[in-house]
Amino acid sequence: MPLQEALRVEHLTQTYQAKNGETAAIDDLSFSVREGEFVSIVGPSGCGKSTLLSIISGLLTPTGGSVWVYGEPVTGITPKIAYMLQRDYLLPWRTIWKNVIFGLQVQGKDTAERLSYAEELLKTYGLYEFRDSYPAQLSGGMRQRAALIRTLAMQPDILLLDEAFSALDYQTRLAVSDDVYRILRREHKTILMVTHDIPESISMSDRILVLSGRPARLRAEHDICFDLPERTPLLCRNQPEFSSYFNLVWKELDVYVE
């Protein structure tokens, strides 16, 4: 692969201290993500997936190990990495436009150039006419889009998605993941997605990392390849390879789901 390595996680370890003892959340986890790659991390619920993303994004300092982005160590929040949470978390008292530029405002990057880029994104992804609406007036799918644009406006290299669609109902979820996938591919982003939904991970990713239950260790790794000229999550779900990938990942998870 000629592609550059965008993200590298080395011997990551995380333990939590509490009154009644210490809990190991992540145990010696190492992997890397190439530029432009879509990697999913699948693991049983509560295995420390969100903790992992918090560490990579710089919100949380790990107990051991390190995270590198394009050869530089991550020590705190960095503009190179964007983190999308489980729900859209649009601020109800701000209009869509004000929500979209929230990140830019917070970081003092609301320059004319960046603002016009955000405006372009709104136009491209069909939210421009809703810029003065409030989040409550938008559908779940549109809100998710707005949240995505808020993230893209920061022009990050790497996007971390934390169960980004889990709050939506099943149909909306299929449509939104298709939508988000197209947008992310179009913007040529490197993605690391965490999920417990196996079909979702197979339909969207180039590679799947399977984690064990708590403490999280790397259990297996699979390259996902579909024989499709133009890949989209919905099309992938109809491919014959889909179910064999599903069975493969399912079996590995099964051992640890008790």
Binding site: I77, L85, Y89, V106, Q107
Partner: peptide
């Protein structure tokens, strides 16, 4: 808490 976390992911 999640709204606060969202703001923190943007470095607030």
């Amino acid at each position: 808490e999640d709204l606060i976390k969202m703001a923190r992911t943007f470095g607030a």
